[in-house]
Design a protein around this nucleic acid. Sequence first.
DNA 1: CCTACCGATCGGTAGG
DNA 2: CCTACCGATCGGTAGG
Lengths: 205, 205
Amino acid sequence: MARATPEKRRSRTRGQAGNDRRTQIIKVATALFREKGYHVTSLDDIADRIGFTKPAIYYYFKSKEDVLFAIVNSIVDEALERFRAIADGPGSAGERIHALLVEHTRTILRNLDANTVFYNERGLLSPKREKEMRQREREYTEVMRSLYAEGVASGELLDIDPSVATATLLGASIWSYRWFDPRGRLSVDEVAEQIAKLLLNGYRR
Amino acid sequence: MARATPEKRRSRTRGQAGNDRRTQIIKVATALFREKGYHVTSLDDIADRIGFTKPAIYYYFKSKEDVLFAIVNSIVDEALERFRAIADGPGSAGERIHALLVEHTRTILRNLDANTVFYNERGLLSPKREKEMRQREREYTEVMRSLYAEGVASGELLDIDPSVATATLLGASIWSYRWFDPRGRLSVDEVAEQIAKLLLNGYRR
DNA sequence: CCTACCGATCGGTAGG
DNA sequence: CCTACCGATCGGTAGG
Protein backbone atom coordinates (compact mmCIF):
# COMPACT_ATOMS: atom_id res chain seq x y z
CA MET A 1 0.00 0.00 0.00
CA ALA A 2 3.04 2.27 0.04
CA ARG A 3 2.87 2.84 -3.71
CA ALA A 4 4.64 5.99 -4.82
CA THR A 5 3.06 8.36 -7.29
CA PRO A 6 5.43 7.53 -10.16
CA GLU A 7 4.39 3.88 -9.89
CA LYS A 8 0.77 4.79 -10.25
CA ARG A 9 1.39 7.03 -13.19
CA ARG A 10 3.27 4.30 -14.98
CA SER A 11 0.52 1.80 -14.42
CA ARG A 12 -2.07 4.14 -15.79
CA THR A 13 -0.02 5.10 -18.81
CA ARG A 14 0.70 1.53 -19.77
CA GLY A 15 -2.69 0.06 -19.15
CA GLN A 16 -2.13 -3.67 -18.53
CA ALA A 17 1.55 -3.09 -18.17
CA GLY A 18 2.21 -6.46 -16.59
CA ASN A 19 0.69 -8.47 -19.39
CA ASP A 20 2.31 -6.34 -22.05
CA ARG A 21 5.72 -6.82 -20.52
CA ARG A 22 5.23 -10.53 -20.19
CA THR A 23 4.07 -10.75 -23.77
CA GLN A 24 7.02 -8.66 -24.83
CA ILE A 25 9.49 -10.91 -23.06
CA ILE A 26 7.96 -13.96 -24.71
CA LYS A 27 8.05 -12.35 -28.11
CA VAL A 28 11.70 -11.33 -27.86
CA ALA A 29 12.71 -14.64 -26.30
CA THR A 30 10.95 -16.53 -29.08
CA ALA A 31 12.88 -14.64 -31.74
CA LEU A 32 16.20 -15.13 -29.95
CA PHE A 33 15.64 -18.78 -29.13
CA ARG A 34 14.87 -19.37 -32.77
CA GLU A 35 17.92 -17.46 -34.03
CA LYS A 36 20.52 -18.69 -31.59
CA GLY A 37 18.98 -21.55 -29.69
CA TYR A 38 17.91 -21.73 -26.07
CA HIS A 39 21.28 -22.32 -24.45
CA VAL A 40 23.16 -19.79 -26.52
CA THR A 41 20.62 -17.11 -25.63
CA SER A 42 21.25 -15.58 -22.23
CA LEU A 43 18.69 -13.77 -20.13
CA ASP A 44 20.89 -10.71 -20.55
CA ASP A 45 20.42 -11.00 -24.33
CA ILE A 46 16.67 -10.96 -23.90
CA ALA A 47 16.70 -8.12 -21.40
CA ASP A 48 19.09 -6.07 -23.53
CA ARG A 49 16.88 -6.25 -26.56
CA ILE A 50 13.93 -4.97 -24.56
CA GLY A 51 15.93 -2.30 -22.80
CA PHE A 52 15.86 -4.04 -19.48
CA THR A 53 18.20 -5.64 -17.07
CA LYS A 54 18.08 -9.35 -16.39
CA PRO A 55 16.41 -9.35 -12.96
CA ALA A 56 13.37 -7.72 -14.51
CA ILE A 57 12.64 -11.00 -16.21
CA TYR A 58 12.42 -12.69 -12.84
CA TYR A 59 9.58 -10.37 -11.98
CA TYR A 60 7.53 -12.11 -14.66
CA PHE A 61 9.05 -15.60 -14.79
CA LYS A 62 10.44 -17.90 -12.14
CA SER A 63 13.24 -19.21 -14.34
CA LYS A 64 14.66 -19.25 -17.83
CA GLU A 65 13.03 -22.59 -18.43
CA ASP A 66 9.67 -21.06 -17.59
CA VAL A 67 10.08 -18.66 -20.48
CA LEU A 68 10.71 -21.56 -22.85
CA PHE A 69 7.81 -23.45 -21.39
CA ALA A 70 5.46 -20.51 -21.97
CA ILE A 71 6.37 -20.53 -25.65
CA VAL A 72 6.21 -24.27 -26.16
CA ASN A 73 3.01 -24.64 -24.19
CA SER A 74 1.05 -22.13 -26.21
CA ILE A 75 1.94 -23.96 -29.41
CA VAL A 76 0.64 -27.29 -28.22
CA ASP A 77 -2.56 -25.72 -26.96
CA GLU A 78 -3.28 -24.09 -30.26
CA ALA A 79 -2.51 -27.19 -32.31
CA LEU A 80 -4.60 -29.49 -30.17
CA GLU A 81 -7.60 -27.19 -30.29
CA ARG A 82 -7.61 -26.88 -34.07
CA PHE A 83 -7.08 -30.58 -34.51
CA ARG A 84 -10.10 -31.52 -32.47
CA ALA A 85 -12.35 -29.04 -34.24
CA ILE A 86 -11.52 -30.48 -37.64
CA ALA A 87 -11.43 -34.11 -36.59
CA ASP A 88 -14.90 -33.80 -35.10
CA GLY A 89 -16.19 -31.96 -38.16
CA PRO A 90 -17.94 -33.22 -41.28
CA GLY A 91 -16.48 -35.20 -44.19
CA SER A 92 -15.00 -38.62 -44.79
CA ALA A 93 -11.83 -39.69 -42.99
CA GLY A 94 -9.77 -38.76 -46.03
CA GLU A 95 -11.40 -35.36 -46.34
CA ARG A 96 -10.84 -34.56 -42.72
CA ILE A 97 -7.21 -35.63 -42.90
CA HIS A 98 -6.77 -33.36 -45.88
CA ALA A 99 -8.28 -30.43 -43.98
CA LEU A 100 -6.14 -31.28 -40.97
CA LEU A 101 -2.95 -31.22 -43.01
CA VAL A 102 -3.73 -27.92 -44.71
CA GLU A 103 -4.62 -26.29 -41.44
CA HIS A 104 -1.63 -27.75 -39.62
CA THR A 105 0.84 -26.43 -42.16
CA ARG A 106 -0.83 -23.04 -42.21
CA THR A 107 -0.72 -22.76 -38.46
CA ILE A 108 2.97 -23.57 -38.38
CA LEU A 109 3.98 -21.24 -41.19
CA ARG A 110 1.94 -18.33 -39.88
CA ASN A 111 3.80 -18.48 -36.61
CA LEU A 112 7.23 -19.65 -37.67
CA ASP A 113 9.26 -18.29 -34.76
CA ALA A 114 7.31 -20.01 -32.03
CA ASN A 115 6.89 -23.22 -33.98
CA THR A 116 10.58 -23.39 -34.74
CA VAL A 117 11.33 -23.03 -31.05
CA PHE A 118 8.74 -25.66 -30.33
CA TYR A 119 10.24 -28.25 -32.64
CA ASN A 120 13.87 -27.39 -32.02
CA GLU A 121 14.03 -26.67 -28.31
CA ARG A 122 11.28 -28.52 -26.51
CA GLY A 123 13.69 -31.34 -25.77
CA LEU A 124 15.49 -28.99 -23.39
CA LEU A 125 12.62 -28.76 -20.94
CA SER A 126 12.82 -30.62 -17.66
CA PRO A 127 12.01 -34.32 -17.95
CA LYS A 128 8.70 -33.75 -16.22
CA ARG A 129 7.59 -31.03 -18.59
CA GLU A 130 8.92 -32.81 -21.62
CA LYS A 131 6.88 -35.82 -20.68
CA GLU A 132 3.81 -33.65 -20.32
CA MET A 133 4.42 -32.18 -23.77
CA ARG A 134 4.83 -35.61 -25.32
CA GLN A 135 1.62 -36.66 -23.70
CA ARG A 136 -0.38 -33.83 -25.20
CA GLU A 137 1.26 -34.26 -28.57
CA ARG A 138 0.28 -37.90 -28.46
CA GLU A 139 -3.31 -36.81 -28.03
CA TYR A 140 -3.42 -35.09 -31.35
CA THR A 141 -1.37 -37.70 -33.10
CA GLU A 142 -3.90 -40.17 -31.84
CA VAL A 143 -6.76 -38.13 -33.27
CA MET A 144 -5.25 -38.50 -36.70
CA ARG A 145 -4.22 -42.09 -36.28
CA SER A 146 -7.73 -43.26 -35.47
CA LEU A 147 -9.05 -41.20 -38.37
CA TYR A 148 -6.59 -42.93 -40.66
CA ALA A 149 -7.47 -46.36 -39.32
CA GLU A 150 -11.13 -45.59 -39.96
CA GLY A 151 -10.31 -44.67 -43.56
CA VAL A 152 -8.37 -47.88 -44.08
CA ALA A 153 -11.24 -49.95 -42.68
CA SER A 154 -13.74 -48.32 -45.02
CA GLY A 155 -11.42 -48.85 -47.97
CA GLU A 156 -11.01 -45.13 -48.62
CA LEU A 157 -7.35 -44.89 -47.67
CA LEU A 158 -4.11 -46.61 -48.63
CA ASP A 159 -3.62 -49.68 -46.52
CA ILE A 160 -0.41 -49.14 -44.63
CA ASP A 161 0.25 -48.99 -40.91
CA PRO A 162 -1.81 -46.06 -39.54
CA SER A 163 0.95 -45.03 -37.14
CA VAL A 164 3.52 -44.84 -39.90
CA ALA A 165 1.07 -43.02 -42.16
CA THR A 166 0.19 -40.46 -39.50
CA ALA A 167 3.77 -39.77 -38.50
CA THR A 168 4.81 -39.42 -42.13
CA LEU A 169 1.96 -37.11 -43.13
CA LEU A 170 2.44 -34.91 -40.10
CA GLY A 171 6.20 -34.94 -40.59
CA ALA A 172 5.88 -33.77 -44.16
CA SER A 173 3.73 -30.90 -42.96
CA ILE A 174 5.89 -30.03 -39.96
CA TRP A 175 9.14 -30.13 -41.90
CA SER A 176 8.00 -27.01 -43.76
CA TYR A 177 9.17 -24.97 -40.78
CA ARG A 178 12.73 -25.76 -41.83
CA TRP A 179 12.58 -24.66 -45.44
CA PHE A 180 9.70 -22.24 -45.87
CA ASP A 181 10.83 -18.72 -46.72
CA PRO A 182 8.25 -16.03 -45.92
CA ARG A 183 9.95 -13.76 -48.42
CA GLY A 184 9.83 -16.44 -51.09
CA ARG A 185 7.74 -16.82 -54.20
CA LEU A 186 4.93 -18.83 -52.65
CA SER A 187 2.50 -17.79 -49.94
CA VAL A 188 1.73 -19.76 -46.82
CA ASP A 189 -1.60 -20.84 -48.26
CA GLU A 190 -0.11 -21.95 -51.55
CA VAL A 191 2.54 -24.03 -49.85
CA ALA A 192 0.02 -25.56 -47.45
CA GLU A 193 -2.22 -26.53 -50.36
CA GLN A 194 0.59 -28.01 -52.43
CA ILE A 195 1.93 -30.10 -49.59
CA ALA A 196 -1.54 -31.47 -48.82
CA LYS A 197 -2.20 -32.17 -52.48
CA LEU A 198 1.04 -34.08 -52.85
CA LEU A 199 0.32 -36.20 -49.81
CA LEU A 200 -3.22 -36.94 -50.90
CA ASN A 201 -2.41 -37.94 -54.46
CA GLY A 202 1.19 -39.02 -54.29
CA TYR A 203 3.84 -37.68 -56.63
CA ARG A 204 3.07 -40.21 -59.36
CA ARG A 205 0.52 -38.69 -61.63
CA MET B 1 62.61 -40.76 -30.15
CA ALA B 2 62.71 -40.94 -26.37
CA ARG B 3 59.76 -43.29 -26.24
CA ALA B 4 59.57 -45.31 -23.06
CA THR B 5 58.94 -49.02 -23.18
CA PRO B 6 55.42 -48.85 -21.70
CA GLU B 7 54.45 -46.47 -24.49
CA LYS B 8 55.63 -48.89 -27.13
CA ARG B 9 53.88 -51.79 -25.58
CA ARG B 10 50.61 -49.91 -25.49
CA SER B 11 50.91 -48.92 -29.11
CA ARG B 12 51.53 -52.45 -30.19
CA THR B 13 48.72 -53.87 -28.12
CA ARG B 14 46.18 -51.41 -29.43
CA GLY B 15 47.20 -51.44 -33.05
CA GLN B 16 45.92 -48.19 -34.56
CA ALA B 17 45.32 -46.78 -31.12
CA GLY B 18 44.99 -43.21 -32.32
CA ASN B 19 42.22 -43.97 -34.74
CA ASP B 20 40.43 -46.19 -32.30
CA ARG B 21 40.47 -43.52 -29.67
CA ARG B 22 39.24 -40.89 -32.07
CA THR B 23 36.48 -43.18 -33.24
CA GLN B 24 35.60 -43.95 -29.66
CA ILE B 25 35.33 -40.28 -28.75
CA ILE B 26 33.07 -39.67 -31.74
CA LYS B 27 30.89 -42.61 -30.87
CA VAL B 28 30.43 -41.60 -27.25
CA ALA B 29 29.95 -37.94 -28.14
CA THR B 30 27.33 -38.89 -30.71
CA ALA B 31 25.32 -40.81 -28.14
CA LEU B 32 25.57 -38.03 -25.57
CA PHE B 33 24.82 -35.22 -28.01
CA ARG B 34 21.75 -37.10 -29.05
CA GLU B 35 20.58 -37.79 -25.50
CA LYS B 36 21.27 -34.46 -23.91
CA GLY B 37 22.09 -32.05 -26.71
CA TYR B 38 25.39 -30.45 -27.60
CA HIS B 39 25.43 -27.66 -25.04
CA VAL B 40 24.24 -29.75 -22.16
CA THR B 41 26.96 -32.32 -22.81
CA SER B 42 30.30 -31.29 -21.36
CA LEU B 43 33.65 -32.58 -22.49
CA ASP B 44 33.99 -34.03 -19.00
CA ASP B 45 30.83 -36.06 -19.64
CA ILE B 46 32.37 -37.50 -22.76
CA ALA B 47 35.71 -38.17 -21.14
CA ASP B 48 34.09 -39.73 -18.08
CA ARG B 49 32.14 -42.23 -20.11
CA ILE B 50 35.30 -43.36 -21.83
CA GLY B 51 37.35 -43.45 -18.67
CA PHE B 52 39.41 -40.43 -19.60
CA THR B 53 40.01 -36.95 -18.43
CA LYS B 54 38.97 -34.00 -20.53
CA PRO B 55 42.37 -32.87 -21.84
CA ALA B 56 42.74 -36.22 -23.55
CA ILE B 57 40.06 -35.12 -25.99
CA TYR B 58 42.23 -32.19 -27.00
CA TYR B 59 44.85 -34.63 -28.12
CA TYR B 60 42.45 -35.74 -30.86
CA PHE B 61 40.33 -32.64 -31.46
CA LYS B 62 41.12 -28.95 -31.46
CA SER B 63 37.82 -27.95 -29.87
CA LYS B 64 34.43 -29.19 -28.77
CA GLU B 65 32.95 -27.87 -31.97
CA ASP B 66 35.37 -29.98 -33.95
CA VAL B 67 33.88 -33.08 -32.37
CA LEU B 68 30.41 -32.01 -33.47
CA PHE B 69 31.70 -31.16 -36.90
CA ALA B 70 33.25 -34.59 -37.32
CA ILE B 71 29.87 -36.19 -36.65
CA VAL B 72 27.84 -33.86 -38.83
CA ASN B 73 30.31 -33.94 -41.65
CA SER B 74 30.35 -37.70 -42.01
CA ILE B 75 26.56 -37.73 -42.33
CA VAL B 76 26.50 -35.28 -45.20
CA ASP B 77 29.25 -37.13 -47.00
CA GLU B 78 27.42 -40.41 -46.82
CA ALA B 79 24.09 -38.96 -47.92
CA LEU B 80 25.52 -37.07 -50.85
CA GLU B 81 27.37 -40.11 -52.14
CA ARG B 82 24.33 -42.37 -52.08
CA PHE B 83 22.15 -39.73 -53.65
CA ARG B 84 24.39 -39.30 -56.62
CA ALA B 85 24.70 -43.02 -57.23
CA ILE B 86 20.95 -43.48 -57.40
CA ALA B 87 20.19 -40.27 -59.27
CA ASP B 88 22.68 -41.23 -61.98
CA GLY B 89 21.32 -44.78 -62.16
CA PRO B 90 18.67 -46.32 -64.40
CA GLY B 91 14.91 -45.82 -64.34
CA SER B 92 12.42 -43.03 -64.93
CA ALA B 93 12.47 -39.91 -62.78
CA GLY B 94 9.68 -41.29 -60.63
CA GLU B 95 11.42 -44.63 -60.18
CA ARG B 96 14.66 -43.00 -59.18
CA ILE B 97 12.91 -40.72 -56.70
CA HIS B 98 11.27 -43.77 -55.18
CA ALA B 99 14.62 -45.51 -54.84
CA LEU B 100 16.11 -42.31 -53.40
CA LEU B 101 13.44 -42.05 -50.73
CA VAL B 102 13.70 -45.67 -49.66
CA GLU B 103 17.46 -45.46 -49.45
CA HIS B 104 17.42 -42.12 -47.67
CA THR B 105 15.09 -43.34 -44.94
CA ARG B 106 17.06 -46.53 -44.53
CA THR B 107 20.32 -44.66 -44.17
CA ILE B 108 18.88 -42.39 -41.49
CA LEU B 109 17.24 -45.14 -39.47
CA ARG B 110 20.25 -47.41 -39.59
CA ASN B 111 22.36 -44.72 -38.01
CA LEU B 112 19.89 -42.95 -35.79
CA ASP B 113 22.30 -41.45 -33.26
CA ALA B 114 24.44 -39.60 -35.76
CA ASN B 115 21.51 -38.53 -37.90
CA THR B 116 19.64 -37.20 -34.90
CA VAL B 117 22.67 -35.14 -33.97
CA PHE B 118 22.93 -34.01 -37.57
CA TYR B 119 19.37 -32.74 -37.76
CA ASN B 120 19.13 -31.41 -34.23
CA GLU B 121 22.53 -29.84 -33.61
CA ARG B 122 24.08 -28.79 -36.87
CA GLY B 123 22.70 -25.29 -36.35
CA LEU B 124 25.17 -24.88 -33.50
CA LEU B 125 28.22 -24.99 -35.72
CA SER B 126 30.09 -21.80 -36.46
CA PRO B 127 28.46 -19.66 -39.17
CA LYS B 128 31.20 -20.62 -41.59
CA ARG B 129 30.76 -24.32 -41.11
CA GLU B 130 27.01 -24.11 -41.02
CA LYS B 131 27.10 -22.33 -44.34
CA GLU B 132 29.33 -25.05 -45.75
CA MET B 133 26.89 -27.71 -44.53
CA ARG B 134 23.93 -25.90 -46.07
CA GLN B 135 25.85 -25.69 -49.31
CA ARG B 136 26.46 -29.41 -49.49
CA GLU B 137 22.93 -30.20 -48.44
CA ARG B 138 21.72 -27.97 -51.24
CA GLU B 139 23.68 -30.11 -53.66
CA TYR B 140 21.70 -33.19 -52.91
CA THR B 141 18.41 -31.36 -52.64
CA GLU B 142 19.18 -30.02 -56.09
CA VAL B 143 19.76 -33.52 -57.43
CA MET B 144 16.26 -34.46 -56.44
CA ARG B 145 14.69 -31.18 -57.49
CA SER B 146 15.93 -31.48 -61.05
CA LEU B 147 14.83 -35.10 -61.15
CA TYR B 148 11.37 -34.01 -60.06
CA ALA B 149 11.25 -31.21 -62.64
CA GLU B 150 12.18 -33.75 -65.30
CA GLY B 151 9.32 -35.97 -64.22
CA VAL B 152 6.86 -33.09 -64.32
CA ALA B 153 8.00 -32.12 -67.82
CA SER B 154 7.54 -35.66 -69.10
CA GLY B 155 4.09 -35.85 -67.51
CA GLU B 156 5.07 -38.69 -65.19
CA LEU B 157 4.83 -36.72 -61.94
CA LEU B 158 2.27 -34.58 -60.18
CA ASP B 159 2.52 -31.02 -61.37
CA ILE B 160 3.37 -28.97 -58.31
CA ASP B 161 6.36 -26.77 -57.58
CA PRO B 162 9.44 -29.06 -57.69
CA SER B 163 11.07 -27.28 -54.76
CA VAL B 164 8.03 -27.76 -52.57
CA ALA B 165 7.70 -31.36 -53.71
CA THR B 166 11.34 -32.15 -52.99
CA ALA B 167 11.36 -30.51 -49.58
CA THR B 168 8.14 -32.27 -48.62
CA LEU B 169 9.20 -35.72 -49.79
CA LEU B 170 12.57 -35.46 -48.11
CA GLY B 171 10.98 -34.02 -44.98
CA ALA B 172 8.59 -36.94 -44.72
CA SER B 173 11.56 -39.29 -44.96
CA ILE B 174 13.78 -37.34 -42.58
CA TRP B 175 11.10 -36.90 -39.94
CA SER B 176 11.28 -40.61 -39.28
CA TYR B 177 14.32 -39.94 -37.10
CA ARG B 178 11.96 -38.39 -34.56
CA TRP B 179 9.47 -41.19 -34.19
CA PHE B 180 11.07 -44.43 -35.30
CA ASP B 181 11.56 -46.90 -32.50
CA PRO B 182 14.23 -49.53 -33.18
CA ARG B 183 12.59 -51.76 -30.61
CA GLY B 184 9.21 -51.34 -32.23
CA ARG B 185 7.08 -53.66 -34.27
CA LEU B 186 8.37 -52.63 -37.68
CA SER B 187 11.85 -53.00 -39.08
CA VAL B 188 13.85 -50.25 -40.71
CA ASP B 189 13.20 -51.72 -44.13
CA GLU B 190 9.47 -52.05 -43.59
CA VAL B 191 9.15 -48.47 -42.43
CA ALA B 192 11.28 -47.18 -45.30
CA GLU B 193 9.09 -49.06 -47.80
CA GLN B 194 5.83 -47.87 -46.30
CA ILE B 195 6.88 -44.24 -46.22
CA ALA B 196 8.00 -44.37 -49.85
CA LYS B 197 4.82 -46.16 -50.87
CA LEU B 198 2.65 -43.55 -49.19
CA LEU B 199 4.51 -40.70 -50.86
CA LEU B 200 4.35 -42.33 -54.28
CA ASN B 201 0.65 -43.18 -54.23
CA GLY B 202 -0.79 -40.73 -51.76
CA TYR B 203 -3.00 -41.76 -48.88
CA ARG B 204 -6.15 -41.75 -50.98
CA ARG B 205 -6.60 -45.20 -52.36
C1' DC C 1 12.40 -3.12 -12.18
C1' DC C 2 17.72 -1.77 -10.82
C1' DT C 3 22.65 -2.50 -8.72
C1' DA C 4 25.70 -5.59 -7.10
C1' DC C 5 27.10 -9.98 -6.56
C1' DC C 6 27.53 -15.08 -5.74
C1' DG C 7 28.33 -19.95 -7.00
C1' DA C 8 28.81 -23.19 -10.31
C1' DT C 9 29.93 -24.82 -14.72
C1' DC C 10 32.79 -25.30 -18.45
C1' DG C 11 35.83 -24.84 -22.55
C1' DG C 12 40.35 -24.54 -23.01
C1' DT C 13 45.55 -24.41 -21.73
C1' DA C 14 50.11 -24.93 -19.30
C1' DG C 15 53.38 -28.04 -18.51
C1' DG C 16 54.64 -32.22 -18.13
C1' DC D 1 47.06 -38.65 -21.83
C1' DC D 2 47.14 -36.53 -16.61
C1' DT D 3 47.04 -32.69 -12.79
C1' DA D 4 46.09 -28.25 -11.87
C1' DC D 5 44.18 -24.19 -13.05
C1' DC D 6 42.44 -19.94 -15.42
C1' DG D 7 38.96 -16.78 -17.42
C1' DA D 8 34.60 -16.06 -18.84
C1' DT D 9 29.81 -16.78 -18.88
C1' DC D 10 25.57 -17.18 -16.82
C1' DG D 11 21.39 -18.39 -14.12
C1' DG D 12 19.75 -16.83 -10.17
C1' DT D 13 19.26 -13.92 -5.71
C1' DA D 14 19.66 -10.20 -2.11
C1' DG D 15 17.95 -6.08 -1.03
C1' DG D 16 16.03 -2.35 -2.25
